[in-house]
Design a protein around this nucleic acid. Structure first.
Lengths: 183, 183
DNA sequence: TCTCACATGTAACTAGTTACATGATTGC
DNA sequence: GCAATCATGTAACTAGTTACATGTGAGA
């Protein structure tokens, strides 16, 4: 089982979806912590089905192409649940912007400043986006986000991380900008 | 040019190193934002040399195996400097722990709590590590860390990100733990 | 007419990981 | 004798990206 497989099972545990739907979900912002293209999703769904973790049925549609609606099986639910608490290998962080910061002493000051300003903007926008989703969770699911057996709690937890991550990232970018702008 | 190539050039711009040294550097904590195994580094160095961005000379050693010491060329320096401010593609975040949080409603509560407690510990340790390096920079290079043309400024900037990242990560893990522990 | 959203797939390639392979010296 | 550090490489595999491929219906 690959991590993508678990990501798909995690989404299908909430509601039945087609491969196309899954690809949409694995775009921002739900998929800020994991994402994939349809070219990776379709073969992965076939593998999940071969292992009995999902099933599909074809939905005939007149106004648009037919689709395969995937549903998680009881076994699939079990497998995701077990995976969540299984030993986690040390996470591999790769961040090209931090790598660029590490090399910024070799770059043109003005251009570097402009780049970090733009990155600050991008992460501030992303932060605003997550904060809006957080506010929506608090307004629409204020009960469920405290219930750890609810998917809304889990979604809220992920969004909380998104907020914290982007807030910190934005602050760091701005700090770099002030350093590059000094004097 | 791959990102790894730029990472290697960024290290070689500071001092000449062997492939083995580079592999050591690309381990924690310098390499918290980028890392690679020696199996990827050796071929990449050969490519960099073929492009005229680095050169090497063999250092004969009696007490240990001979090594190839790589040095960055003027062209190499130019190439890294330009890359730093070149357009940055949207960063692809992949975080398995957040994905697991998104699926935590399907898991056993006690086991999930234990896992997030352990992750909180790991990130708190990592934070302490970065904070020590930050303090070392401030004590040993208090002048250079304000000079944006100094590699120490760039190193300090990267470490600042490490501190912020791990601080936020630790806080989030602890928040998840308190949620899982409630009642 | 053309583009966009819906819908599903395969093929070719790239980056990165794991495993294989070798060999010297130092310290337990 | 055995493990660890230093030192350099290759081979096989996996995950993920980009590009190729096809086709419908709605709306500008």
């Amino acid at each position: 089982m690959t991590t993508l497989g678990f990501a798909l099972l995690g989404l299908l545990a909430r509601e039945p979806l087609s491969g196309y739907d899954l690809a949409q979900q694995l775009k921002k912002p739900v998929g800020f912590f994991w994402h994939a293209r349809h070219s990776q999703i379709y073969p992965e769904l076939a593998l999940l089905e071969a292992e009995g973790l999902v099933t599909h049925r074809v939905i005939d549609q007149t106004d648009r192409p037919d689709k395969k609606l995937y549903e998680i099986t009881g076994q699939g639910r079990q497998v995701v649940g077990d995976w969540v608490t299984s030993p986690l290998p040390v996470p591999a962080v790769r961040d090209e912007l931090v790598l660029r910061a590490y090399c910024v002493w070799l770059a043109d000051r003005g251009r570097a400043r402009a780049m970090f300003e733009e990155q600050a903007r991008i992460h501030a926008d992303s932060l605003a986006h997550y904060e809006a989703i957080k506010a929506w969770f608090e307004a629409e699911h204020h009960e469920q986000i405290r219930d750890i057996t609810s998917p809304h709690f889990a979604g809220y937890a992920a969004v909380m991380r998104g907020v914290g991550y982007e807030r910190e990232y934005t602050e760091w970018c701005r700090w770099v900008v002030t350093m590059l702008a000094a004097e």
